[in-house]
Design a protein around this nucleic acid. Structure first.
Lengths: 139, 139
DNA sequence: TTTCAATTTGTAATCATTACAAAATTAAAT
DNA sequence: ATTTAATTTTGTAATGATTACAAATTGAAA
């Protein structure tokens, strides 16, 4: 528990009891829990816990660089015709999604660390070329 | 429009007017549209169009292999501590998410086709080693 | 003890998506 | 042309994750 507190302080997050328990739950878990799973796991220890607190706390942790989030195939799905395998780049500023060809191995139907791969999704996020240029011109 | 009809027939999908227009909208677009964007784009041509039809149709297209879907950072987000960069493998059968280390370049802070990469998410989907073994035993 | 800021809570709203059943359309058979 | 059955389309209501927001609580400092 001291270790948990230390991590929070190192990242400039006030170590409230809720935050310590939520981070501890994350550190003890190796199952990539969702917000709801963390909430349910802690209800025994903190019967008054609010789900909003879990969401707020996880958002704080991510902003402070303590944790990272990811998602695999969920809401707000986007569609495209079946092209050659490629990756996607989404610009944080303008929201445009670019196709990225080449420079990625196609793992479909291959075995990776014992697991049989059927689909492969590579998502890059950052600042696109157009927005970089725009930023330079503005400055 | 004949080209659209041909694609549908080749994939054993009855070429109704709705399906042809939805596929055409997808083929004309280079912006990886969402279901809602397709719906709004077609409202002029088909004022009676239902959003459910768009969802149903896209699902059919995907099942028949005409299109593919993907999503970038959305609902049902999952969390983990900041570890070394790695990919995720999600098993279609048991739902378990495995970490995959190695065999992927870390592109963070690199430039890819002109775009500055800040985050990288690699998601593999398929049948995990455990479920493959289980299947063999069942057979 | 008062005060102020930060934290936590609970309810209601949002948004993409799905469930479901009714209505409309189509094709085939009579 | 009419009936029939299957398919397609529609609209409404539900679901489920997440967020907005404002009130309540807590904690630390003065």
């Amino acid at each position: 528990m001291d270790r948990v507190k230390k991590i929070l302080l190192e990242h400039e997050v006030v170590p409230s009891i809720h935050r310590m328990l939520i981070l501890q739950a994350l550190m003890n878990s190796c199952s990539h829990p969702s917000a709801d799973e963390i909430y349910r796991a802690l209800l025994n220890q903190i019967p008054t816990l609010s789900k909003t607190t879990v969401y707020n706390t996880l958002k704080t942790f991510e902003e402070k660089g303590i944790i990272e989030s990811f998602s695999i195939m969920n809401n707000e799905v986007r569609y495209e015709l079946q092209p050659h395998p490629h990756a996607h780049f989404k610009c944080k500023l303008c929201g445009t999604i670019y196709d990225i060809y080449g420079s990625f191995d196609c793992l479909r139907d291959k075995i990776v660390e014992g697991h049989k791969v059927q689909e492969q999704h590579i998502n890059l996020i950052g600042i696109c070329a157009a927005c970089q240029k725009k930023d330079k011109n503005d400055a």
